[in-house]
Computed example of a mutant assay.
Amino acid sequence: MSLLSSVACADAILSSDNDSKCVLRVGPDLIHVTAYQAQDPRAEFCRDIPNIGPVIIVLDYVDAELRNMMADIRVIKDVGGGADMSGAPNILSDAEVAPEALDSVTERHLPAKLYPTGIISFQHNFTSAGTYHGIVTVKNEHGQIYVSQFPFSVGQAHRGAILFYGLIAASIVAGAFGYWIYSRRYGAVPSSKKA
C-alpha cells in the first residue's frame, strides 16, 4: 500500500532538440515542452525565453498513458535556488516543490484535471526577467504521484551571448597587452636575413 501512494521526483529536462523542444520525464512517461512568444510566433523556445511579456507554454504528451492521469501545472518564480555553470536555474528540492511551499511563489496554477487530448496549452504574461520553474505533478489511477520540473529563464537569453563575446574581447585585449609588454621589454624581434 505504501508503494501505491509514493511520490517520485523525476529528472528535469531529459534532452532537447536545438534548444526549442525539451523532453521532460514525468515518472516513466515523457512530455514535450515548448514555449512561444508573440514577438516571433514561429520561433520555439525551451530553456531560454528571450523577452518578457506574454508567453504561450505547450506541454504535449509523448506517452498516451498520461491522458488518463490527473495533471497539476504550476509556474513559479525562482526564489534563490541558484544556477548551474550554464546559467540555468538549479532543480528544486522535494521540500521546495511541496504544494504548501509553492503557493506563495506561484505565478500561474492550473489545478489538477485530465487532459484527454494530450495537450496542455496556456498563456502567461511574464512581467519581470528572471529564472522560473514549471512544475508538473501527475497522479495515476493507482495513487502514484510523480513530480517533475523544467527550469527556464525569461528575458535573460542575451546575457550568455554578452558574456561570451565579452570573454573573447577580453582575451584579445589581454593578448595585445601582453605582446606590447613583451615587445617593450625585449625590443622588436630581429628578422632573419637570407644569405
Score class of each variant (00 low, 15 high):
V136A: 04
I73Q: 03
N140L: 09
S104F: 02
I57M: 14
V23T: 14
V105A: 03
I76L: 03
L114G: 02
E100N: 07
T106H: 13
G130S: 07
G27Q: 13
Q144E: 14
I168D: 05
A176N: 03
D48K: 08
S183F: 11
V33K: 09
H158R: 08
P151T: 04
V23K: 13
V75M: 03
F126P: 02
F152T: 00
T137K: 12
G166E: 06
P28D: 13
A95M: 06
A174N: 07
V189K: 15
G87V: 04
T127D: 08
D94T: 03
S128E: 01
S192G: 12
I162E: 04
V23S: 06
L4N: 14
E100C: 04
V147L: 05
A101V: 04
G175P: 05
T106A: 11
Q149T: 09
S191T: 15
A88R: 04
A64C: 10
D103F: 04
P50N: 02
T106L: 08
A71K: 00
F177T: 14
S86I: 00
E44K: 14
A174R: 09
L66I: 05
V26I: 10
N125A: 06
N90K: 00
T106R: 09
P41L: 05
L110V: 14
A161E: 01
S191I: 12
R42A: 11
A157T: 09
I56N: 10
R67L: 05
K113Q: 13
A188L: 13
F122A: 07
F122T: 09
G160A: 12
C22W: 13
P111L: 00
G82K: 05
T131S: 06
G134D: 02
G134R: 02
I145C: 06
F45A: 05
A169Y: 09
V33E: 14
P99H: 04
A129T: 03
Q37L: 11
Q39M: 11
K194Y: 15
M1F: 13
I119Y: 07
Q144S: 13
A71H: 02
E65I: 08
D84Y: 01
L163N: 04
V136Y: 06
I145K: 13
I56M: 13
P89Y: 02
I13A: 02
D63Q: 06
L110T: 11
P89L: 01
L59M: 12
A10D: 15
Y115L: 02
N90L: 01
G178F: 13
S6Q: 15
F150S: 05
P190T: 10
G82D: 00
G53Y: 04
F150M: 05
P116L: 00
M70C: 11
F45C: 12
D19P: 07
L114P: 02
A176L: 14
Y165C: 04
R184W: 14
G175E: 00
L114C: 06
T131Q: 05
H142T: 13
A35F: 15
L3H: 15
I135K: 08
A8W: 12
S148E: 08
F152E: 00
I49G: 03
N18E: 15
R159N: 10
H142P: 00
R67D: 07
I181N: 14
E65M: 06
A161F: 08
Y179G: 00
Q123W: 01
